[in-house]
């Protein structure tokens, strides 16, 4: 059953990815890319990465693809490409792709099938994690790759991301924490936001507001009136 799901999702994902690359219309490509992301998050679910599946759909399929579609429709890029693709580049790409796939196939062949089975999650700092790891180890489904028990991965990712305590308990190494990289990420997003604003700001000559026009035109009128009254 799991194999069936795996094949369905991966083949659908690859078909959608091919549609992105081969499609003529950018809007179709963008929508196919969103579907690629959906199928990939389904594969994430099969790998027990529920949190990442949710984040993938929210961020990549939701925000990033909407941004892509928005830009495509804003710039009205729906017309197909003008020049047909050159044969040289197609050949170059094919050679590169086949070479890469060949190397990957060699590597995968060198690793015998089934040599890599799912290891039990290592016991982390929280005591609940340790009991959970033991449960995972003894679980009959542990070697088949798909645990019936939905292990608490999201919980543990939260600990891994945000835990700050560093007391090593019973000779265990200090748990890794990713708080500092997480904070740096927020800085990165801030920099990106400011960069986008700077890039997209128009530097047109500033048009004076109506109030400024009034104040600028008013003094000469007064002057004229004054000169008229003086005369």
């Amino acid at each position: 059953m799991n194999a069936l799901f795996f094949w369905f999702f991966s083949i659908a994902m690859i078909v959608c990815a091919l549609a992105v690359v081969l499609g003529r219309n950018p809007v179709t490509s963008a929508i196919c890319f969103a579907f690629t992301i959906f199928y990939m998050s389904a594969l994430f679910v099969m790998l027990n990465a529920f949190f990442l599946a949710a984040v993938q759909i929210l961020v990549t399929a939701g925000a990033v693809m909407v941004l892509f579609l928005f830009i495509i429709m804003l710039l009205d890029l729906t017309e197909p490409e003008k020049i047909p693709r050159q044969r040289i580049w197609m050949g170059c790409a094919l050679v590169l792709a086949l070479g890469f796939l060949y190397v990957v196939a060699l590597t995968l062949n060198a690793t015998p099938e089934g040599a890599v089975t799912i290891n039990a999650a290592p016991p982390t700092h929280a005591p609940t994690d340790r009991t959970m790891a033991i449960r995972v180890q003894n679980h009959p489904g542990a070697s088949t790759g798909f645990l019936v028990d939905l292990s608490d991965d999201t919980h543990r990712i939260g600990h891994l991301l945000f835990s700050t305590y560093d007391k090593p308990t019973d000779n265990k190494p200090v748990p890794i924490s990713y708080v500092a990289p997480f904070e740096v990420t927020s800085l990165l997003i801030l920099v990106a936001t400011i960069g986008v604003i700077v890039l997209c700001k128009h530097d047109e000559p500033r048009r004076p507001s109506p109030r400024e026009e009034i104040t600028r035109e008013a003094p000469p009128k007064v002057e004229k009136a004054e000169t008229a009254s003086i005369r």
């Binding site: 994902m13 990815a17 690359v21 003008k82 790759g145």
Partner: peptide
Amino acid sequence: EITLNHYLAVGAILFVIGLMGVITRRNLI
């Protein structure tokens, strides 16, 4: 049984499709 190798192969195929898109397409988007 689905092993790690299957996932790696799917990832490699997806990567190669993306690579071909980068090389052959003419539209920046």
